[in-house]
Write a protein that binds this DNA or RNA. Structure first.
Lengths: 240, 240
DNA sequence: CGCCGTCTTGCGTAAACCCGCAGCTTGTTG
DNA sequence: CAACAAGCTGCGGGTTTACGCAAGACGGCG
């Protein structure tokens, strides 16, 4: 059995290496990659079926890498090992998991035990293991309770990118008014009005910009999500 | 000699601990804190004069912590050890350094040697040591060449927070028009027009929102900067 | 001192944004 | 099938943005 580790921090990488050795005696080879690009390449070359992947990496982040890896070989098992449980990451990951694939999401703050257990569960037992903290977000974000629907999230990303209403309408195939409806809905859920109107006529917020900031502060968005969205946008702009 | 380490990742913390031991034989005690709040407390209790500090920490980030520490004891020597060289961080740090204080900024990706050298230079020789990569940003951001002036940066933060033009005017003591002037200036420097007008009538950007995103993608802004700015804003809102 | 560049401010306008109102299309449920 | 909730759309209008134009204000500098 072979395991591929994709992680850009050398300290964490060697820690993972040790953890894999300890948790998986049946593993005879461990390969390491220090960023997403190298990770993809090694995964391809070695036909890796077992991968531990960091999410936030400078060169090419874990979500991107995982997507292409899964595209080529959907039965690959991937354990995401991340510092953060931002909703943006969770959403990003669950968006790309192939049907029925075994994967995991464990926080770096988890104990040794948790990590080792997760390694065995995913790689040996083909089970999905998702940290409690992450799980909470996932339910909220996918179930509709209190969380955001896909269309709301979509529009959030669009205004975050700085598109005009009209541009969004064109991109998503909607009328201007529908876009604005969704915006209102978004503003509502993000509680942008709250502090806006409270001290009467004076210090009002620009709803559109405020919504983006609030989303950021709530970790609904983060740098990597923006980066991905921007790339998609550019792609769309190419295709007229 | 005593050294205080403030760093939330246990792996990095123990790595630092070792590095300090190796580089500073004259150091007899090493104290550790796992977040900014604890760091401030320990610094106060131990009257620490030598601190190694991570920037990005969950509870209270390094810039906040350093600010209060320096406020109480400006001659404290602090080495910032960070994963990132975002302009937002660099700007944040150089904004709070007391006059003539010895401090350093070293990236986590630097070699063992670099780190140890920096430790000695700052703690023993009272010199400032700033990594090459970081230095570049610093010059750009403080010198005016190509970079952003303080007033531009200020307004960038204000729109990022989601304030209206009017609110900004009030906050900064300017007229509406002046605020808008600065905005134009900002849009200009951020190159927001570029992709905006290229295929003219079709896919235009919302300049205000776009500017914020571009700033984010260029690391002019980041989460921690936003967080700080938001706190300041709330404070200002209190004081009417 | 007069000239010039930078910064500020007011006026005015076209465009974009926010949103209430109301008519339509769907899918769901009793 | 009627009833109802949910989403899309057009219309209309009040507010905010973006920005050209032009008139001061302030600070060097020859």
């Amino acid at each position: 059995m072979k395991v591929l580790i994709v992680e850009d921090d050398p300290l964490h990488r060697s820690y993972l290496h040790e953890a894999v050795n300890a948790a998986l005696p049946e593993c005879d080879t461990v390969i390491e990659a220090e960023n997403g690009t190298v990770g993809e390449k090694l995964a391809r070359d070695h036909k890796s079926a077992h991968i531990v992947m960091d999410l936030q990496m400078a060169n090419r982040n874990g979500i991107e890498a995982a997507r292409t890896i899964w595209k080529e070989r959907p039965e690959t098992r991937i354990l995401f090992w991340s510092n953060y449980s931002d909703e943006a990451y969770v959403r990003g990951v669950s968006r790309i998991v192939p049907d029925g694939a075994a994967y995991g999401y464990v926080l770096k703050s988890a104990s040794d035990e948790r990590l080792k257990l997760a390694l065995r569960s995913i790689f040996i037992e083909s089970q999905c293991v998702i940290d409690r903290e992450v799980r909470g977000l996932q339910q909220k974000s996918l179930g509709q309770t209190n969380g955001f629907t896909d269309s709301e999230y979509e529009i959030l990303v669009d205004i975050a990118l700085g598109l005009t209403d009209r541009a969004i309408a064109k991109r998503r195939g909607l009328s201007l008014r529908s876009v604005q409806n969704r915006l209102q809905q978004l503003y509502d859920k993000l509680d942008v009005y709250q502090s806006a109107g409270d001290d009467h006529e004076d210090g009002r917020f620009n709803l559109r910009a405020r919504a983006v900031t609030v989303a950021f502060l709530r970790k609904l968005l983060n740098y990597s999500a923006l980066e991905r969205a921007e790339a998609e946008l550019q792609e769309w702009l190419e295709g007229k």
